[in-house]
Amino acid sequence: MTNATTDPWAVWREARPPTRLVHLDSASAGRSSYAVLEAVGDHLLLEAQVGGYVAADQAAPALDRARADLGRLLGLGAGDLAFVESATAALDVLLDVWPLPAGSRVGVPPSAWGPNVELVRRRGHLPVPLPVDGVGVLTPDLLDGALTTDPPDLVLLDLVAAHRGLVQPARELAAVARRHGVPLWVDVAQGLGHVDADTGADAVVATSRKWLTGPRGVGLVGVASGHHDRLRVPARAKHPDTGPVALLESDEAHVAGRLGLGLAAAELLAVGPEAVAARLVEVGQEVRDRVAEVPGWRVVGPDAPAAAITSVAPTAGQDPARVRAGLLAAGVLTTLCLPWRAPGEVGEHDPGSLRVSPHVDVVGDDLDALVRGLVAAAG
């Protein structure tokens, strides 16, 4: 682990406001740059000066660039993307407009994001478990077997699990699903800005605020061009010449947030998504190496293909909620992971774990502070 004076990623830190604490929570909300914050503020000011709709018209070219840049990251065209409010809102939109029969069977791995599974149920569909290997990976062979013997109507996959650093081979899985004629949707909320998010999926949902470090309150839905015509999107007299994906966007929009998201995507492309992804693999390994040596704690799923998310669980009776609160009081920000995040994998009586998710600019002093807190909590 580099220190603050030799860290080649210090420029990433310097592009952002100073933190008041050790920020190890990019999987919840990454830290936006000064430029992203300025872009959001400038548009809000413009709305006050010239009116919201005039300001939105003036922002149209920048929003077009944002869709194009986000499409580059997701392997989609600009016309395949629509801005929505969040990844959850994106999934809700997909479930509304995709021609799924009532009561469709939706295949999900055990590590699936719990709120996504709940939303599938609320929409009247049946989540069904898909087989995984010993560390939780849905391998192409296992998916091929499942789609051969008992295919669901849809496969819904998290590119990166939210409760631990499990990365699924989405591109290979998309090829398998395509051979079987089963649509594959990928939730890239934890993947965009973290790992390669070009999944080859039929549809994707994403958010701005995590590893991409854009503003909160903005998300994306993406539908591959070959599926546009099958979407059940009603025509709108206000937008007579607008395609079905673009019609998924709300006119009552957080345009400032969309501009911030677009700028965050442009920043990632300028730095290099591959370089960021490689660095985040290093970050995750550094974290796991450090916390694996702390008495009273264990790394959750250490053998899984992982990037920068690490979850640690107590082995000495510690209450993770109290530990998380204690760390925060000491100036270290982490996330409490309770079973609702992945109920297919985590038992309801599990006491939970702590999720540690630093970004590329983490330094040794940051992890020293985390280790001190974990040691103190273990007694």
Score class of each variant (00 low, 15 high):
Leu248Cys: 07
Thr213Gly: 00
Arg236Met: 12
Arg230Lys: 07
Gly272His: 10
Ala253Ser: 14
Gly214Val: 02
Gly214Trp: 01
Arg209Cys: 06
Gly219Glu: 04
Val218Trp: 07
Ala256His: 09
Ser225Val: 09
Pro234Val: 08
Ala253His: 11
Val255Lys: 01
Ala270Cys: 04
Lys238Ala: 15
Ala253Ile: 07
Arg236Asn: 10
Ser225Phe: 02
Ala270Met: 02
Gly243Ser: 07
Gly217Ser: 09
Arg230Ser: 13
Val233Met: 02
Ala265Asn: 08
Gly219Trp: 05
Gly260Ala: 12
Gly272Thr: 10
Ala235Leu: 06
Gly217Pro: 01
Gly257Gln: 11
His228Gln: 11
Ser208Lys: 00
Leu268Lys: 01
Leu212His: 03
Gly214Asp: 06
Thr242Ala: 14
Glu252Asn: 11
Gly219Phe: 05
Pro240Ile: 09
Leu269Met: 09
Trp211His: 15
Ala270Thr: 12
Trp211Asp: 12
Pro244Thr: 10
Glu267Ile: 04
Arg209Val: 03
His227Gly: 01
Leu231Gly: 05
Leu263Ala: 02
Ala237Val: 11
His227Ala: 15
Arg216Ala: 14
Val218Met: 04
Ala264His: 11
Leu212Arg: 00
Pro240Gly: 11
Ala246Phe: 06
Arg216Gln: 14
Arg216Pro: 00
Arg236His: 12
Gly257Arg: 12
Ala237Asp: 13
Pro215Ala: 12
Asp251Ser: 14
Ala224Arg: 10
Leu212Val: 00
Val233Cys: 04
Ala265His: 05
Pro234Asp: 12
Ala246Gln: 13
Leu268Phe: 01
Val233Gly: 12
Pro215Lys: 04
Leu268His: 10
Leu212Met: 02
Leu231Phe: 01
Leu268Arg: 05
Leu263Tyr: 05
Pro273Asp: 06
His227Phe: 12
Val223His: 01
Leu220Ile: 13
Ala256Ile: 08
Thr242Glu: 13
Leu212Thr: 00
Ala266Lys: 01
